[in-house]
Design a protein around this nucleic acid. Structure first.
Lengths: 146, 146
DNA sequence: GACTTACCGATGCATTTGCATGAAAAGGCT
DNA sequence: AGCCTTTTCATGCAAATGCATCGGTAAGTC
C-alpha cells in the first residue's frame, strides 16, 4: 500500500541499471575471450569451493530457478566441465563434480572475469564507500519476504 | 589487470543478487495481478513523460538493446498499447505514441509496481542510507567506458 | 550529382527462458 | 504395510533473447 519515496525510486532505477550494465560488461568480456558466460563460472566456483554436491544445494546457494539450473547443468555436462553421477543415498538426485577440464576452465575464466568486475565496479566505487555499499546491499540480497 | 578487492567482490555478488531479487519480485507481483511485465511499464512511462518519440530515443533512455526494444514494441503494438506512425522528417523511423489503452494500462500497473518496489527496496533500506545508496550507485549506472 | 559512410530499425535463426507439469523417490502417518 | 504429502530433478511447449545481418534512408565528402 505504501508508495515508495522519490529517493527509493532513484535507488530502484540505478540499482537495476548498475547491475544490468555490470553483468553485461562481464558477459561481453568473457564472450570476447571465447569463454562461457558468467553463470557457468558461478557453478564452477561453487563446486570447487564446496566440493561435489547436488543440484538442490547449488540452486539454493546460487539462487537460480530449478529448471534454469537443470538445463545449465545439462550444457555444462555436455561441454565436459562437470559430471553427474548417481547419488548413492538418494536415488532421485545426482552428485555433481568438476572434471579436470572444469577446473581448467574456471582458472581460465577468472582473470577475464576479475578484470571485468574491477572495471565495472572496483574502479568506480570510491574506496571508502565500498564497505558501506556492501553493508547497505546486504539486506537487499536476500529474498523479499525473508 | 588489477584484481578486484575482496570487498569489491562482496559488492559484486550482492549487487547482482539484490537487483535480480528485486526485479523478480516486481515481475511476480505484476504477473500475479494479470498485468504485463516491468519493461512494458518502462516504455509506457517514458512515452507518457517524454511524449511521442522514436525508438532510438527510447533505446538510449531505457538502455535496452536495439533488437530487444524492436520486438518489445512489436508486442506492445499488437496489444494495442502504443502506435507506430511513420516519421515525417525521417523515412527510416517511426514515431511511437501511447494509445488510450496504453495510458490506462500504465495507471493500472503503477499501484502494483509501486507496492512491489516499496516491499523490495523501500522497506529494507534504512531511511538515512537511501540517499547515500543512490549517490554511490550513480556512477555505476552509466556504461562502463563512459 | 555520385559515392561512401553512418544510422535506424527489422528479422532469420539458433539458443535460452518461463511456466506448467511429469516422473520418480523419500518421508511421514496411521 | 498402505497411503498421502513433499522433495528432487527433468522436460514439452510457447515465448523471449542474442547475435549477426539486411534493407532502407540520411548525412558527409569529393
Amino acid at each position: 500500500m505504501a508508495k515508495p519515496a522519490a529517493m527509493t525510486l532513484l535507488v530502484w532505477t540505478r540499482l537495476l541499471r548498475a547491475a544490468d550494465l555490470a553483468e553485461q560488461h562481464c558477459a561481453a568480456a568473457l564472450r570476447a575471450a571465447g569463454l562461457p558466460p558468467p553463470d557457468w563460472y558461478d557453478v564452477l566456483l561453487a563446486l570447487e569451493r564446496g566440493g561435489p554436491q547436488r543440484p538442490r544445494a547449488l540452486q539454493t546457494s546460487l539462487g537460480t530457478e530449478q529448471y534454469a539450473l537443470s538445463r545449465l547443468l545439462d550444457r555444462m555436462v555436455r561441454a565436459g566441465l562437470i559430471t553427474r553421477t548417481p547419488c548413492p543415498d538418494d536415488a532421485r538426485g545426482h552428485t555433481l563434480d568438476l572434471t579436470t577440464e572444469g577446473r581448467t576452465m574456471r582458472s581460465a575464466m577468472w582473470p577475464v572475469y576479475a578484470e571485468a568486475i574491477e572495471a565495472a565496479l572496483g574502479a568506480r566505487v570510491v574506496e571508502d564507500d565500498c564497505a558501506a555499499l556492501a553493508r547497505m546491499l546486504g539486506p537487499l540480497a536476500v529474498p523479499v519476504s525473508g
